[in-house]
Protein backbone atom coordinates (compact mmCIF):
# COMPACT_ATOMS: atom_id res chain seq x y z
CA UNK A 1 0.00 0.00 0.00
CA UNK A 2 1.11 3.50 -0.69
CA UNK A 3 1.31 5.98 2.12
CA UNK A 4 -2.05 7.68 2.48
CA UNK A 5 -1.90 11.28 1.37
CA UNK A 6 -4.30 13.35 3.48
CA UNK A 7 -7.09 14.48 1.21
CA UNK A 8 -7.00 18.21 0.51
CA UNK A 9 -9.75 20.08 2.29
CA UNK A 10 -9.16 23.02 -0.03
CA UNK A 11 -7.25 23.24 -3.27
CA UNK A 12 -6.65 26.46 -5.19
CA UNK A 13 -4.98 26.46 -8.60
CA UNK A 14 -3.99 29.44 -10.69
CA UNK A 15 -6.56 31.76 -9.19
CA UNK A 16 -6.77 35.17 -10.85
CA UNK A 17 -9.05 38.01 -9.86
CA UNK A 18 -9.23 41.58 -11.11
CA UNK A 19 -11.39 44.52 -10.22
CA UNK A 20 -11.53 46.42 -13.51
CA UNK A 21 -7.93 47.14 -14.44
CA UNK A 22 -6.61 46.29 -11.01
CA UNK A 23 -5.31 42.74 -10.87
CA UNK A 24 -5.67 41.84 -7.22
CA UNK A 25 -4.90 38.10 -7.30
CA UNK A 26 -2.27 37.07 -9.87
CA UNK A 27 -2.18 33.30 -9.84
CA UNK A 28 -2.68 31.83 -6.38
CA UNK A 29 -1.85 28.16 -5.75
CA UNK A 30 -2.58 26.84 -2.30
CA UNK A 31 -3.61 23.52 -0.72
CA UNK A 32 -4.97 23.01 2.76
CA UNK A 33 -4.97 19.51 4.26
CA UNK A 34 -7.85 18.49 6.49
CA UNK A 35 -7.51 19.84 10.02
CA UNK A 36 -4.83 22.21 8.84
CA UNK A 37 -4.67 25.84 9.96
CA UNK A 38 -3.05 28.23 7.52
CA UNK A 39 -2.56 31.91 8.28
CA UNK A 40 -2.45 34.52 5.51
CA UNK A 41 -0.22 37.48 6.23
CA UNK A 42 0.71 40.39 4.04
CA UNK A 43 0.44 44.14 3.89
CA UNK A 44 -2.80 45.98 3.45
CA UNK A 45 -4.14 45.66 -0.09
CA UNK A 46 -2.17 42.50 -0.86
CA UNK A 47 -5.42 40.63 -1.54
CA UNK A 48 -6.07 38.60 1.61
CA UNK A 49 -9.73 39.51 1.94
CA UNK A 50 -10.28 39.13 -1.78
CA UNK A 51 -8.84 35.60 -1.68
CA UNK A 52 -11.15 34.59 1.16
CA UNK A 53 -14.16 36.13 -0.54
CA UNK A 54 -13.33 34.27 -3.77
CA UNK A 55 -13.14 30.96 -1.91
CA UNK A 56 -16.60 31.59 -0.51
CA UNK A 57 -17.81 32.55 -4.02
CA UNK A 58 -18.77 36.00 -2.81
CA UNK A 59 -16.64 37.30 -5.70
CA UNK A 60 -16.65 35.75 -9.17
CA UNK A 61 -13.14 34.70 -10.23
CA UNK A 62 -11.49 35.38 -13.58
CA UNK A 63 -9.37 32.26 -13.95
CA UNK A 64 -8.30 29.20 -12.01
CA UNK A 65 -9.98 26.47 -9.98
CA UNK A 66 -11.08 26.07 -6.37
CA UNK A 67 -11.72 22.58 -5.08
CA UNK A 68 -13.32 21.84 -1.71
CA UNK A 69 -13.24 18.27 -0.41
CA UNK A 70 -12.81 16.98 -3.95
CA UNK A 71 -15.59 19.08 -5.53
CA UNK A 72 -14.69 21.85 -7.90
CA UNK A 73 -16.75 24.74 -6.65
CA UNK A 74 -15.76 27.10 -9.45
CA UNK A 75 -17.15 24.83 -12.17
CA UNK A 76 -19.93 26.43 -14.17
CA UNK A 77 -23.43 25.53 -13.11
CA UNK A 78 -22.67 24.55 -9.52
CA UNK A 79 -25.21 25.50 -6.89
CA UNK A 80 -23.36 28.25 -5.04
CA UNK A 81 -25.77 28.19 -2.13
CA UNK A 82 -24.97 24.52 -1.47
CA UNK A 83 -21.27 25.29 -1.52
CA UNK A 84 -21.50 28.21 0.83
CA UNK A 85 -23.13 25.96 3.42
CA UNK A 86 -19.92 23.99 3.62
CA UNK A 87 -17.66 27.01 3.93
CA UNK A 88 -18.06 29.34 6.87
CA UNK A 89 -16.68 32.87 6.77
CA UNK A 90 -16.32 35.38 9.57
CA UNK A 91 -15.69 39.03 8.77
CA UNK A 92 -13.71 41.75 10.46
CA UNK A 93 -16.90 43.74 11.08
CA UNK A 94 -18.86 40.78 12.55
CA UNK A 95 -21.84 41.50 10.29
CA UNK A 96 -24.37 40.14 12.74
CA UNK A 97 -27.98 40.80 11.76
CA UNK A 98 -28.90 43.80 13.94
CA UNK A 99 -32.66 43.25 13.81
CA UNK A 100 -32.49 39.74 15.27
CA UNK A 101 -31.70 38.38 18.68
CA UNK A 102 -28.44 36.53 19.16
CA UNK A 103 -30.34 33.25 19.14
CA UNK A 104 -32.11 34.12 15.89
CA UNK A 105 -28.78 35.12 14.33
CA UNK A 106 -27.31 31.72 15.09
CA UNK A 107 -30.38 29.63 14.27
CA UNK A 108 -31.55 31.41 11.09
CA UNK A 109 -29.43 29.54 8.55
CA UNK A 110 -29.86 26.08 10.13
CA UNK A 111 -33.62 26.63 9.97
CA UNK A 112 -33.94 28.17 6.54
CA UNK A 113 -31.06 26.45 4.78
CA UNK A 114 -30.74 23.08 6.49
CA UNK A 115 -34.47 22.86 7.17
CA UNK A 116 -34.19 22.20 10.89
CA UNK A 117 -37.27 22.77 13.01
CA UNK A 118 -37.29 25.88 15.16
CA UNK A 119 -36.99 23.98 18.44
CA UNK A 120 -34.08 21.88 17.25
CA UNK A 121 -32.25 24.78 15.63
CA UNK A 122 -32.63 26.89 18.75
CA UNK A 123 -31.53 24.06 21.01
CA UNK A 124 -28.40 23.62 18.93
CA UNK A 125 -27.78 27.35 18.84
CA UNK A 126 -28.17 27.57 22.61
CA UNK A 127 -25.70 24.74 23.03
CA UNK A 128 -23.16 26.55 20.86
CA UNK A 129 -23.73 29.82 22.71
CA UNK A 130 -23.28 27.97 25.95
CA UNK A 131 -19.90 26.77 24.78
CA UNK A 132 -18.75 30.37 24.40
CA UNK A 133 -20.41 31.39 27.65
CA UNK A 134 -23.07 33.55 26.02
CA UNK A 135 -26.18 31.41 26.45
CA UNK A 136 -27.60 33.98 28.87
CA UNK A 137 -27.34 36.65 26.14
CA UNK A 138 -29.32 34.65 23.63
CA UNK A 139 -32.36 36.95 23.71
CA UNK A 140 -30.33 40.15 23.49
CA UNK A 141 -29.85 42.09 20.29
CA UNK A 142 -26.32 42.31 18.93
CA UNK A 143 -25.91 45.98 19.83
CA UNK A 144 -26.15 45.07 23.51
CA UNK A 145 -23.02 42.92 23.26
CA UNK A 146 -19.38 43.96 23.41
CA UNK A 147 -17.31 43.69 20.23
CA UNK A 148 -15.61 40.54 21.46
CA UNK A 149 -18.95 38.96 22.32
CA UNK A 150 -20.36 39.95 18.93
CA UNK A 151 -17.42 38.44 17.12
CA UNK A 152 -17.73 35.20 19.07
CA UNK A 153 -21.43 35.06 18.19
CA UNK A 154 -20.48 35.59 14.53
CA UNK A 155 -18.06 32.67 14.75
CA UNK A 156 -20.66 30.46 16.37
CA UNK A 157 -23.18 31.51 13.73
CA UNK A 158 -20.83 30.17 11.07
CA UNK A 159 -20.19 27.01 13.10
CA UNK A 160 -23.91 26.31 13.40
CA UNK A 161 -23.83 25.30 9.72
CA UNK A 162 -21.17 22.69 10.57
CA UNK A 163 -18.85 23.84 7.79
CA UNK A 164 -15.97 21.73 6.47
CA UNK A 165 -13.83 24.82 6.22
CA UNK A 166 -13.77 28.08 8.11
CA UNK A 167 -12.41 31.32 6.64
CA UNK A 168 -11.56 34.10 9.07
CA UNK A 169 -10.87 37.60 7.79
CA UNK A 170 -8.99 39.71 10.34
CA UNK A 171 -11.56 38.90 12.94
CA UNK A 172 -9.80 40.76 15.75
CA UNK A 173 -8.90 43.95 13.87
CA UNK A 174 -12.04 45.80 14.88
CA UNK A 175 -11.69 44.88 18.56
CA UNK A 176 -10.27 46.76 21.51
CA UNK A 177 -7.02 45.10 22.59
CA UNK A 178 -8.51 43.70 25.79
CA UNK A 179 -11.20 41.88 23.81
CA UNK A 180 -8.85 40.21 21.35
CA UNK A 181 -7.87 37.38 23.68
CA UNK A 182 -11.39 36.00 24.17
CA UNK A 183 -11.83 35.69 20.41
CA UNK A 184 -8.42 34.15 19.84
CA UNK A 185 -9.08 31.62 22.62
CA UNK A 186 -12.14 30.45 20.76
CA UNK A 187 -10.13 30.02 17.55
CA UNK A 188 -7.49 28.10 19.48
CA UNK A 189 -10.16 25.78 20.75
CA UNK A 190 -11.51 25.26 17.22
CA UNK A 191 -8.04 24.46 15.95
CA UNK A 192 -7.65 21.99 18.79
CA UNK A 193 -10.85 20.30 17.69
CA UNK A 194 -9.50 19.86 14.18
CA UNK A 195 -11.37 22.58 12.28
CA UNK A 196 -9.73 23.36 8.94
CA UNK A 197 -9.14 27.08 8.83
CA UNK A 198 -7.68 29.73 6.55
CA UNK A 199 -7.07 32.85 8.61
CA UNK A 200 -6.13 36.30 7.33
CA UNK A 201 -4.54 38.09 10.25
CA UNK A 202 -2.30 40.91 11.40
CA UNK A 203 -1.72 39.15 14.75
CA UNK A 204 1.71 37.69 14.05
CA UNK A 205 2.10 36.23 17.53
CA UNK A 206 -1.15 34.37 17.12
CA UNK A 207 -0.21 33.16 13.61
CA UNK A 208 3.09 31.87 14.94
CA UNK A 209 1.35 29.97 17.69
CA UNK A 210 -1.65 28.51 15.90
CA UNK A 211 -0.72 28.03 12.25
CA UNK A 212 0.58 24.82 10.72
CA UNK A 213 1.80 26.97 7.87
CA UNK A 214 2.00 30.69 7.26
CA UNK A 215 1.52 32.15 3.85
CA UNK A 216 2.93 35.54 2.86
CA UNK A 217 0.82 37.26 0.24
CA UNK A 218 2.44 40.07 -1.69
CA UNK A 219 0.78 42.03 -4.49
CA UNK A 220 -1.61 39.21 -5.33
CA UNK A 221 0.94 36.37 -5.26
CA UNK A 222 1.95 33.88 -2.61
CA UNK A 223 5.56 34.82 -2.24
CA UNK A 224 6.45 32.42 0.51
CA UNK A 225 4.76 29.66 2.43
CA UNK A 226 6.39 27.93 5.37
CA UNK A 227 5.83 26.62 8.89
CA UNK A 228 5.69 29.55 11.30
CA UNK A 229 9.01 28.81 12.96
CA UNK A 230 10.75 29.17 9.59
CA UNK A 231 8.68 32.04 8.32
CA UNK A 232 9.19 34.22 11.35
CA UNK A 233 12.82 33.41 12.15
CA UNK A 234 14.34 32.74 8.75
CA UNK A 235 12.21 34.05 5.89
CA UNK A 236 13.65 33.23 2.49
CA UNK A 237 12.41 36.22 0.57
CA UNK A 238 13.67 39.74 0.91
CA UNK A 239 10.13 41.16 0.73
CA UNK A 240 8.94 38.88 3.50
CA UNK A 241 11.82 40.09 5.63
CA UNK A 242 10.91 43.71 4.94
CA UNK A 243 7.28 43.09 5.79
CA UNK A 244 8.13 41.33 9.05
CA UNK A 245 10.59 44.08 9.92
CA UNK A 246 7.84 46.66 9.47
CA UNK A 247 5.58 44.61 11.69
CA UNK A 248 8.26 44.40 14.36
CA UNK A 249 8.87 48.14 14.11
CA UNK A 250 5.16 48.70 14.60
CA UNK A 251 5.37 46.59 17.74
CA UNK A 252 3.04 43.88 16.54
CA UNK A 253 5.25 40.83 16.97
Amino acid sequence: MTASVPRAALGIEGLHKSFGDLEVLRGIDLDLAEHEVVCLIGSSGSGKSTLLRCINLLEPIDAGRIVVEGDEITATGVDVDRIRRRIGIVFQAFNLFPHMSVLANVSLAPRKVLGLGRAEAEARATELLDRIGLADKRNDYPDRLSGGQQQRVAIVRALAMQPDLLLLDEITSALDPELVAEVLNLIRELAGNGMTMLIATHEMGFAREIANRVCFLDAGRILEIAPPAEMFSAPREERTRQFLQRVIDAGRL
Binding site: A93, F97, M161
Partner: peptide, 12 residues
Protein backbone atom coordinates in the same frame (compact mmCIF):
# COMPACT_ATOMS: atom_id res chain seq x y z
CA UNK B 1 -22.00 43.27 4.03
CA UNK B 2 -25.36 42.21 5.48
CA UNK B 3 -26.17 40.44 2.26
CA UNK B 4 -22.68 38.95 2.12
CA UNK B 5 -23.15 37.60 5.64
CA UNK B 6 -26.51 36.09 4.78
CA UNK B 7 -25.36 34.57 1.51
CA UNK B 8 -22.19 33.18 3.09
CA UNK B 9 -24.41 31.17 5.44
CA UNK B 10 -26.01 29.52 2.43
CA UNK B 11 -29.19 31.58 2.25
CA UNK B 12 -30.22 32.18 -1.34
Amino acid sequence: SQEAAARSLGLN
